[in-house]
Design a protein around this nucleic acid. Structure first.
Lengths: 343, 343
DNA sequence: CTGAAAGCGCTTACAG
DNA sequence: CTGAAAGCGCTTACAG
């Protein structure tokens, strides 16, 4: 229960002033290497750990940032948080996790807490590109970046490039030889639904193909995909059915594949499927495993963090929304095989 | 870009000393209500926000805690973090999210960062009851509680009561009229697998029933359940097959149900299924929706937080591991219907 | 190359 | 009821 060593203790034991101890510990100032080494070894010996509250007070920097989010499931926030933390940890910056749970009152409370904690910056992570988090961020000038969120005028934001991701997904189906490609997705009210529809349409247009009917909006749930499998694949002759489906997320794709299987048809033989999200737990478990689009959320978090730090350090950062590229992850649901069978 | 107001600004404007301002703002000390009101309204007007670094420095309390975790998927940590945050936010305590990613070097780095930040306490959340996080927590005396983790001698821990949860699950199957109940679960190396096997056995023993074969260990994945469906249900006559299966997690249950469906059999008609985890995204999406066990992770997080705060405040806390009860969540996979059909 | 001193923004005995 | 002063543990001009 001995109180932890302070810089004063280190200075005393090392036989130097606190000023010198501070400089030795921070590798600043000029002094004999011998002195520096002595101070550092004393610090180690004493188990000295700098008090970042004291340091922060004088440097006007807390070396903390806040991650404000209202993503309850964590499907999106978790990878973002992982990338963010990773980018922060070796820069000595710690991350406050602040969940706002879609509750404006809680958001305000949380935001005030972040102000008291003197966070150097804020990452606002959402799960909808067309929604923000209700905080009175205006009243202050805490550097802020937005991730997977609506991005106010003049602010800095990082979103996945949904349009391009959808285009890549659809192009992959086209390249695999499919020609009648349907699209089943989430609610039309979601910006990401609409962006993905755009990408689907543009890939088809680029290949001179006609969409297989209009985009089929619904919910983001398995049940939607399952029902649509019955509707699209359960009636009509093979030529009337789509030969491929691009699904707006992996859950819909999962439901669709299950529905198709239940009809006695095969994926990708009778219909190819590409999903969106690369939610491993779904994508790897479908039968067959799902080819899908990865939004690069970890990278999104990392980039957001690095950019926030730049902004905090006063480096010039161009405002605006960045769209980071999505990646195609090929598994087995659209007929692409990594190994050609021996002939 | 005006710097934020300090307590000195508030004091000056209100025409009092900083000491009085501090007392007015903290609702401590004795003073005329008029003075207190005046100070507080000035603070509001100036948008004053207390600097918790300065406060922490003198009070030797940072009003922060650290959540150390190595649960990458976040399946377990997220609800725990949600419960924890919720319990902390209105006590003015903020939570650092610190992911250690199963990397001892990173864990050490993170732990040191938490020390520099002067966290008042630590929650160590894991995803295996039989594993800890490698940190040299010994060297310090930061109050610590463990969640879903191995709990060192003399420490405080909160785990779900796996044995009882499994017993409740099995008992529910028994109560629903099933007699030959198999158990498919994860790797034997996991403590939670073994606990759940215990619960399954004890419920059966209590009802004078014999287990349908030994527990079937495997992986925590859908594929394991899927394969076992083929093996258990795909051969033999109806009387040789189990009439119910308790699965060690929802993914296994999902795979099992899909396998059963694919055999042309029905759940719960031909075989009833109960899962474990209540991972909504799986449990609600199985066909039929899955009856399962909820580990009460949110409550686990809340309890851990409250207890940690007690410990930080110096209140007496009995060391040891607490097992919090699990809840049965009834859906449709074991034949229990909420409404009796009209006769 | 090194140290004495001021100061970051608070809280809290201590005095009156 | 209120204030002057010390001090929390650091960093950083300023001087030497």
């Amino acid at each position: 229960m001995t109180p932890r060593a302070t810089i004063k203790d280190v200075a005393t034991v090392a036989g130097v002033s606190v000023a010198t101890a501070s400089r030795a510990l921070n590798d600043t100032g000029r002094m004999s290497q011998a002195t520096r080494d002595r101070v550092q070894s004393v610090a180690l010996e004493l188990g000295y750990r700098r008090n970042s509250m004291a340091r922060g007070l004088v440097q006007r920097r807390s070396f903390t940032i806040g991650l404000l989010t209202n993503d309850t499931y964590g499907r999106f926030t978790l990878p973002v948080a992982a990338g963010l933390s990773e980018a922060m940890v070796d820069r000595g910056v710690s991350v406050f996790l602040a969940s706002t749970q879609d509750d404006p009152a809680l958001a305000r409370l949380t935001f005030e807490a972040m102000q008291e904690k003197c966070v150097d910056g804020l990452v606002i992570a959402n799960r909808r590109l067309d929604r923000g988090i209700e905080i009175p961020t205006t009243a202050t000038n805490i550097p802020t970046v937005y991730v997977m969120s609506a991005c106010p005028e003049g602010a800095i934001g990082f979103n996945p490039d949904d349009v391009d991701g959808a285009r890549v997904a659809t192009q992959h189906l086209i390249d695999s030889g499919h020609r009648t490609i349907a699209h089943i997705t989430g609610p039309e009210a979601f910006a990401s639904s609409r962006y993905r529809v755009q990408g689907w349409q543009s890939a088809l247009a680029g290949a001179g193909l006609t969409p297989w009917g209009p985009a089929i909006y619904g919910t983001w749930a398995e049940a939607h995909g399952f029902e649509m499998a019955k509707r699209l694949m359960g009636a009509g002759s093979a030529t009337e059915r789509p030969d491929a489906v691009f699904c707006g997320n992996d859950q819909i794709a999962r439901g669709f594949i299950d529905g198709v299987t239940q009809l006695g048809l095969e994926v990708p033989g009778d219909v190819a499927v590409v999903g969106f999200d690369n939610w491993e737990i779904f994508a790897a478990a479908t039968r067959p495993p799902l080819t899908t689009i990865d939004m690069g959320l970890i990278e999104l978090g990392r980039r957001a963090g690095v950019t926030l730090l730049d902004k905090i350090d006063g480096k010039p950062v161009t405002p605006g929304l960045r769209h980071l590229p999505c990646d195609l992850v090929i598994r087995e649901s659209c007929g692409a095989r990594r190994l050609a069978p021996a002939s």
